[in-house]
Amino acid sequence: MKDLVRKRARITRVRSAQHLLAASAAASAEAQVLHLESNAAKLASLRDSLTVESGTTTGAVLQNRGELAQRLDKARDGLNSAIVSARAAAEQKVAERLEARQRQESAAKLDARAVQAMADWTEARVTAAFRPKILKKQGNY
Results as ranks from 00 to 15, higher is better:
Ala75Leu: 08
Val33Ala: 00
Arg15Met: 10
Arg15Lys: 14
Arg15Gly: 05
Ser49Thr: 02
Val94Arg: 10
Ala26Arg: 02
Lys109Leu: 12
Arg8Met: 01
Arg10Ile: 15
Ser45His: 11
Leu62Ala: 04
Arg101Asp: 03
Gln92Ala: 09
Gly55Cys: 00
Gly66Phe: 03
Leu46His: 11
Leu43Asn: 07
Thr12Cys: 09
Gly59Gln: 07
Ala41Trp: 12
Lys74Ile: 10
Arg65Gln: 03
Ser106Arg: 14
Ser38Phe: 03
Ala25Gly: 03
Ala9Gly: 12
Arg47Cys: 09
Val14Arg: 15
Arg101Pro: 00
Ala40Tyr: 10
Ser45Tyr: 08
Ala17Asn: 14
Gln63His: 07
Asn64Pro: 05
Ala108Arg: 05
Lys7Pro: 00
Leu21Trp: 15
Thr56Gln: 07
Asn80Ile: 05
Leu20Tyr: 15
Glu96Trp: 01
Ala95Ser: 11
Leu72Pro: 07
Ala31Cys: 14
Val14Ala: 05
Arg87Ile: 08
Thr12Val: 04
Gln70His: 14
Arg15Val: 00
Asp77Arg: 13
Arg101Cys: 04
Asn80Pro: 06
Arg10Val: 01
Asp3Thr: 07
Arg13Leu: 05
Ser24Val: 05
Ala25Arg: 15
Ala44Arg: 04
Ser45Trp: 12
Ala86Asn: 01
Arg6Asp: 03
Gly78Gln: 15
Arg6Trp: 10
Arg76Asn: 08
Ala95Val: 10
Ala41Gly: 11
Arg10Pro: 00
Ala95Asn: 07
Ala26Phe: 05
Gly78Ile: 12
Asp73Lys: 12
Leu68Tyr: 04
Arg8Lys: 14
Ala89Met: 06
Arg13Pro: 00
Leu21Ala: 11
Ser38Trp: 05
Ala86Gln: 02
Ala60Trp: 03
Glu53Arg: 13
Asn64Cys: 00
Ala17Phe: 09
Gln104Met: 09
Ser24His: 12
Leu68Cys: 02
Asp77Lys: 07
Gln102Phe: 11
Val33His: 03
Arg8Ser: 05
Leu46Arg: 07
Arg6Asn: 13
Ala9Thr: 11
Leu20Gly: 03
Leu79His: 14
Leu4Glu: 02
Ser28Asn: 09
Asn64Gly: 00
Ile83Cys: 03
Ser106His: 09
Gly59Pro: 08
Ser24Glu: 15
Ala86Ile: 01
Gln18Gly: 04
Asp77Val: 10
Arg87Cys: 05
Glu37Phe: 00
Ala90Arg: 05
Gly55Arg: 04
Val52Tyr: 08
Ala107Val: 05
Ala17Pro: 02
Lys42Tyr: 02
Thr56Asp: 03
Gly55His: 04
Ala31Ile: 07
Ser49Asn: 10
Leu4Asn: 09
Ala86Phe: 01
Ser38Thr: 10
Glu37His: 06
